[in-house]
């Protein structure tokens, strides 16, 4: 596999987008201790991105290590982009962010780097503030699903705004067992605290209402 993942045209577009970056962002990249095909693809992708900008770096961390456990990483491949200040905002990518999710990945990195804060309404911020216990949001996606990036980005926005929320993109075909467990057959499927779930990219207010239902039981 010496061929590049990103072809010439995409590289040009990515470079243009990276032009908006300001501070350096670091990605924590969690891999399995055993051989893992998907991990290798992500590493290749990260290496190609690092070639295109000096504003991205990554640390390769083995699952099961103290650092992985500290961040609550239980499956691989996983990535946590950190803010330029080095903060973990509770945003996770499980699986290869390819297809439409490549845009989600790039947007997250560039927004972090440029210090852009996800826009959320005052009302939603107040509701998010009232959350006291940890909330886990998993957004199951396939990379050919056009509605998925929005469902992921809305959850990321909530995680960014609330230290109680962890939001993950989970690429369904790479995590088949987990997808089966939650009976995923349409995407985006949003699973909250492994108990509640809904399908579709709801607008912010409705989306948060679903999350609050899981929180208040």
């Amino acid at each position: 596999m010496s061929e590049k993942l990103l072809d010439g045209e995409i590289r040009k577009q990515v470079e243009e987008i990276f032009g908006n970056m300001r501070s350096e962002v670091r990605i924590l990249f969690f891999v399995d201790s055993k051989r893992c095909e998907f991990c290798e693809t992500i590493e290749k992708l990260l290496d190609e991105l690092v070639e295109l900008t000096d504003k991205i770096s990554y640390d390769k961390i083995t699952a099961g290590s103290t650092e992985a456990n500290d961040h609550g990483i239980e499956m691989t491949p996983a990535m946590i982009p950190l803010t330029p200040e080095g903060d973990d905002k509770g945003i996770r990518f499980y699986g290869i962010p390819s297809g439409h999710e490549f845009g989600t990945f790039l947007k997250t990195l560039v927004d972090f780097s440029a210090g852009a804060v996800p826009e959320i309404s005052e009302r939603s911020l107040e509701r998010l503030d009232s959350i006291d216990d940890p909330v886990d949001i998993k957004v199951f996606v396939t990379t050919s699903c056009p509605y998925c990036p929005k469902a992921v980005l809305t959850a990321f926005g909530f995680a960014f705004a609330s230290s109680k929320i962890t939001a993950s993109m989970v690429e369904a075909s790479e995590f088949e067992e987990l997808s089966k467990k939650f009976r995923v057959s349409s995407v985006p499927q949003v699973v909250i605290n492994s108990s509640r779930s809904f399908v579709g990219a709801h607008p912010e207010e409705e989306y948060l209402t679903e999350i609050m239902k899981a929180v208040t039981g």
Partner: peptide
């Protein structure tokens, strides 16, 4: 796995 798409991204744009 399908290719990588950048899409109509509105990145860090005011």
């Amino acid at each position: 796995m399908n290719a990588f798409e950048v899409g109509g991204l509105n990145i860090a744009k005011k």
